[in-house]
């Protein structure tokens, strides 16, 4: 089902917040924000803010979860009660469980886990403020936190959402666009390997449109990738 609505989201080539269709919101990234964690990060895209922490690798309990020849990834995505308009009731939700799973899968092909038999690597992401594209923001936060934790990785992982409103391809959807676009497509990929590790879609698109969105996400994701690199290296320039 298309989610076409009456709200005008784009006018004269400008979106409601003044952005051009392919423009990404103002972003901010930091690492090492949680002293207790082995790795951590803070990532903001517009008003969407994710804080991620990585704990481990550490011996996994209960024992039946252990794999004798590799480590496993465990992930939890959670929204703080005050992160959105209507208070989120604490506790698990079906939505949260699914997002946790796709974030975890976004890192399965990325981490070298064979050095860590019987262990678990925990990735925790808290959305402390939500305004659309929370899962891809979480992916960027997790990528930085894992690199900051010194976990061996094939590549960093970049997250960016694409979508369509009024026949126009847009990137980095905010909350209003998320709810009222004709389609939205969260994507995560390895920027050097050009491999996609998270891909979801809802709404209606033609083959061509979808191809176009993915192409634009991967091209403009380069900006997000550069920001990740800069954030990781900056920590070590005095």
């Amino acid at each position: 089902m298309g989610k076409k609505s009456d709200i005008v989201l784009i006018e004269n080539g400008k979106r409601l917040d003044g952005r051009k269709p392919l423009e990404i919101r103002d972003t901010e990234m930091k690492v090492g924000v949680i002293p207790n964690a082995n790795g951590s990060s803070y990532v903001r895209f517009g008003k969407t803010i994710a804080i991620a922490a990585v704990y481990g690798p550490k011996l996994l309990y209960p024992k039946h979860l252990q794999e004798s020849d590799r480590g496993i990834i465990q992930c939890r995505y959670n929204m703080a009660p005050f992160s959105v308009d209507e208070r989120v009731r604490p506790g698990t939700s079906r939505r949260g469980t699914e997002i946790s799973k796709v974030i975890k899968l976004a890192f399965e092909p990325v981490l070298f886990l064979e050095n860590y038999p019987k262990t678990g690597i925990d990735i925790y992401v808290e959305i402390i403020q939500a305004d659309g594209s929370t899962r891809v923001t979480s992916v960027n936060a997790a990528s930085l936190a894992l690199a900051n934790a010194g976990i061996p990785m094939r590549d960093l992982v970049v997250g960016l959402s694409g979508g369509k409103i009024s026949d126009t391809i847009i990137l980095d959807l905010d909350g209003k666009e998320d709810n009222n676009s004709e389609a939205d497509v969260p994507v995560a990929f390895m920027p050097n390997k050009k491999e996609i590790t998270l891909l979801q879609m809802d709404g209606q698109l033609t083959n061509e449109e979808l191809k176009d969105i993915i192409k634009n996400v991967m091209k403009n994701g380069e900006i997000v990738y550069k920001k990740q690199i800069e954030t990781l290296k900056k920590r070590y320039d005095e």
């Binding site: 990785m153 960093l156 920027p191 990740q228 990781l232 290296k233 070590y236």
Partner: peptide, 8 residues
């Protein structure tokens, strides 16, 4: 500062 590389 010594050269720093990132994963990948």
């Amino acid at each position: 500062i010594r050269q720093i590389v990132v994963p990948g």
